[in-house]
Every structure is written in C-alpha cells, then in structure tokens.
Amino acid sequence: MNTTAKPVCLHVDGVAVEAPVGASVAAAIAQVTLRFGRRPGGGARAPLCGMGVCFECRVRIDGIDHQRACMTIVREGMRVETAMEPAHG
C-alpha cells in the first residue's frame, strides 16, 4: 500500500501532474486528457482493455513512440506525449 508515499511528478503534454507510486502512465494521462492519440481515420483513440492487449493506449514516453500507457508505471520526471500521428494513412 502506497497511499502515504510521496506522489510521483511527471509531465503529460507539457502539463505537470502527480500520480500515486505504482500508478500507470494511463492514469496520469487521464488527469489531463482522455484522448491518447488519433485513429487512422482521424477519430480519438483511448484505452480500452487496461491490460496490454489492445494497444489503444499507446503514447510517446521519454521520446520513445508506441509505449503502452496501461503497462508502464509512472516514474519521477517522465515526459509523456499523446499527440502521436496515426501509425499510417
């Protein structure tokens, strides 16, 4: 249980957010936006499965594209960007 531990500070699209120790990057992003990226057809893309299967939560983390936000744990000073281009088209 980490409820008393100091929260982790990170940046989502340039906005500073705090998340509990052990939280997923997806949870941190949700404080800022529900749109994690764009679909090939231009619509918004957002998490679905919460467990690493659907890849709908992929974002850029510390400069690396296509990281699943639901499978990644927040780290102090992390930089997360949601404005990724669709994979193709």
Binding site: A23, S24, A27, A28, A30, Q31, P47, G50, C70, V74
Partner: peptide
C-alpha cells in the same frame, strides 16, 4: 472500457 479493463485501469490509479 472493457469491464475488467476499467477495473485494471482504476486499480492502477485512473481517476
């Protein structure tokens, strides 16, 4: 979300 999907996201801190 999926149903278990929501549970997973929320357990990991989703507001």
């Amino acid at each position: 979300f999926g149903a278990g999907g929501a549970q997973a996201l929320i357990k990991q801190g989703w507001p």
